[in-house]
Amino acid sequence: MYLQELTTRFVRYNLWANERLTAWLLTIDPGVLYEETGSSFGTIDRTLQHILAAQNYWYDVIVKEQINEFKLPAEGNAVDHVIANLVVSSRQLASSLSALNEQQLTERIRVSDSTQRRYEYILHVVNHSSYHRGQVVAMCRALGITGEIPVTDYDAYLWWIEHDVV
């Protein structure tokens, strides 16, 4: 039962972190989200699109055991739409993946040339989103945003749930 608790906590953390970061991004000048930074995906907007695409891809793999082509959407000047979809995707992940039992979590599933237990892919998708949220924060700082950037570390989430803030 510990594995189910761990993965549930991780997908709920992912939702919490994405909600915090995106809510804050909606408060800053939207033009900044389209500025080139030289980072992996160039702009904050495209990085958010990548997080969304990856979450959708892995949802299909983990829940439906369906491997679809990984497509990075190319929505221009639609960051509000991307942010809304990212939050919806994060809620869907939290809801669906929290419902998996221990047997489902330890079941091996094949993705391309790799076969891993389902929980390994769940940990991957949360880790992947965390990595790119860090990039978003770095891009914001590089673009001169000095305001109160929200903390989205897992440890901060643990504090919030411990203190019933969430």
Score class of each variant (00 low, 15 high):
83 I>P: 06
120 E>N: 12
117 R>Q: 15
35 E>F: 01
64 K>A: 11
122 I>G: 01
135 Q>F: 00
108 R>D: 11
15 L>H: 07
146 T>G: 11
41 F>L: 05
55 Q>S: 03
42 G>D: 01
91 R>H: 14
70 F>S: 09
158 L>R: 07
65 E>S: 10
102 E>T: 13
73 P>S: 13
163 H>M: 05
50 H>D: 06
98 S>Q: 04
65 E>F: 07
55 Q>P: 01
96 S>K: 11
52 L>T: 03
29 D>T: 05
24 W>M: 02
66 Q>I: 00
34 Y>E: 15
8 T>Y: 01
75 E>S: 05
92 Q>G: 05
124 H>S: 09
75 E>M: 11
30 P>G: 03
95 S>Q: 15
71 K>S: 11
46 R>E: 08
161 I>D: 07
66 Q>V: 01
31 G>N: 12
75 E>I: 13
164 D>S: 14
128 H>W: 12
131 Y>K: 10
166 V>P: 00
143 L>M: 10
139 M>D: 14
79 V>C: 06
166 V>A: 02
145 I>V: 14
79 V>R: 05
44 I>C: 08
31 G>A: 10
54 A>F: 09
97 L>H: 07
125 V>D: 03
64 K>R: 14
128 H>Y: 09
136 V>L: 12
30 P>K: 15
85 N>Q: 15
105 L>M: 07
11 V>A: 01
13 Y>D: 09
11 V>H: 01
34 Y>P: 00
17 A>Y: 04
92 Q>R: 14
30 P>I: 07
72 L>A: 12
102 E>M: 10
149 I>G: 07
42 G>V: 02
115 T>R: 06
78 A>V: 01
142 A>G: 05
147 G>D: 14
163 H>F: 09
154 Y>I: 15
84 A>Y: 11
32 V>S: 01
66 Q>P: 00
28 I>E: 03
112 S>V: 13
48 L>G: 04
122 I>A: 02
147 G>I: 08
150 P>A: 06
149 I>V: 14
10 F>N: 10
77 N>V: 00
61 V>T: 09
49 Q>I: 08
